[in-house]
């Protein structure tokens, strides 16, 4: 599939924004921290901007962005419609939470739980939109949606971690939470990479309905490109996909774990360590963008069979 920049950006950035609530919820429930106003304002603004810019960028790839409101109507059948609706519903507890939390009114925990719940629902719908497409065998995989959710929680938690680190808040328990999330994410990814190696049962024989020992693509409908070939059939061949997978794992999994585990042994200015933790988050974000890019570029749509692709 063609990797559309706006879709990659949307899914990673808004996923991070939603994930922030999960990371924060863990801290609010299990760690005693008295958050100061600066922290609250910064976290609220950051999560809000990430979600809003993500949603806005997702409308950029539409042919008619001015008609985007129509996309809320078909929630009975369409995961894309459900995603849009879930994203809008999330704003209600989210904005109330910001208000209650910043003003320090009791009841914000319940609103945070609701925001976290709808955040996961929104990412779930995004994942399902891809996972429900039978036409793209590597997406039609039960691990796609969990990985979307885990990616959001990983990045969101790393953001909250770097912020808590900056404000010198208690991190002991939260560190363990991040280890577990990253470990789950890594394991899911490994199992996913192994499982997508399996060949799809859609092949050239079922595509044209002829059984034969050898079917070769002789001639296309035209000599140039068309919408299908540019949108769904990649001409970019990634030579070093394994290398990119390793880069992703290093940036998004190994670097954060190493830094969280080893920062106390680094002998340097505490302010530099604080900044490094923010850089760790940015690197993890870049890793996730690479992962999402691979998710698109390595997926093969079955329509490619009609244009001479192998399954």
């Amino acid at each position: 599939m063609h990797p559309s920049k706006s879709i990659i950006f949307f899914t990673v950035i808004s996923g991070t924004g939603y994930g922030i609530f999960i990371g924060l919820l863990f801290n609010v429930l299990f760690v005693e921290i008295s958050y100061n106003l600066e922290y609250k304002l910064f976290l609220s603004l950051a999560s809000f901007l990430m979600i809003v810019t993500g949603l806005l960028s997702s409308t950029l790839h539409l042919g008619h962005p001015e008609r985007a409101w129509r996309a809320f109507s078909q929630w009975k059948t369409s995961w894309l419609s459900r995603e849009g609706l879930a994203a809008v519903i999330t704003f209600i507890p989210m904005i109330l939470f910001y208000y209650f939390w910043i003003i320090n009114i009791s009841g914000y925990i319940l609103l945070l739980i609701l925001t976290s719940f709808f955040s996961i629902i929104t990412i779930f719908c995004t994942g399902q939109m891809y996972a429900s497409l039978k036409t793209i065998p590597s997406w039609n995989n039960p691990l796609v949606t969990p990985i979307y959710i885990l990616n959001g929680i990983t990045l969101g938690s790393l953001f909250v971690y770097s912020l808590n680190f900056y404000f010198n808040y208690n991190l002991n328990l939260f560190e363990k939470f991040i280890y577990i999330i990253i470990l789950l994410n890594f394991l899911s990814k490994i199992i996913y990479w192994i499982s997508v190696r399996k060949k799809s049962n859609t092949n050239i024989e079922t595509a044209i309905g002829i059984k034969s020992n050898g079917i070769t693509f002789f001639e296309g409908p035209h000599t140039g490109k068309n919408y299908l070939t540019t949108e769904m059939i990649n001409t970019i061949r990634i030579q070093n996909s394994n290398l990119l997978r390793i880069v992703f794992c290093v940036l998004s999994f190994i670097t954060p774990i190493y830094m969280i585990n080893q920062y106390s042994s680094l002998v340097t200015d505490p302010f530099i360590i604080k900044i490094s933790m923010i850089i760790v988050f940015v690197l993890a974000l870049i890793g996730m963008i690479i992962e999402r890019y691979l998710f698109f570029i390595q997926s093969k749509h079955v329509v490619g069979l009609y244009y001479g692709n192998k399954n």
């Binding site: 008609r67 919408y227 749509h301």
Partner: peptide
């Protein structure tokens, strides 16, 4: 009149019947 051009339908079709 109501299509927003999200292209998802073309992704969902295995036959490549839809063109943007």
């Amino acid at each position: 009149e109501t299509c927003i051009g999200c292209k998802l339908c073309s992704w969902a079709c295995p036959y490549g019947a839809r063109e943007y």
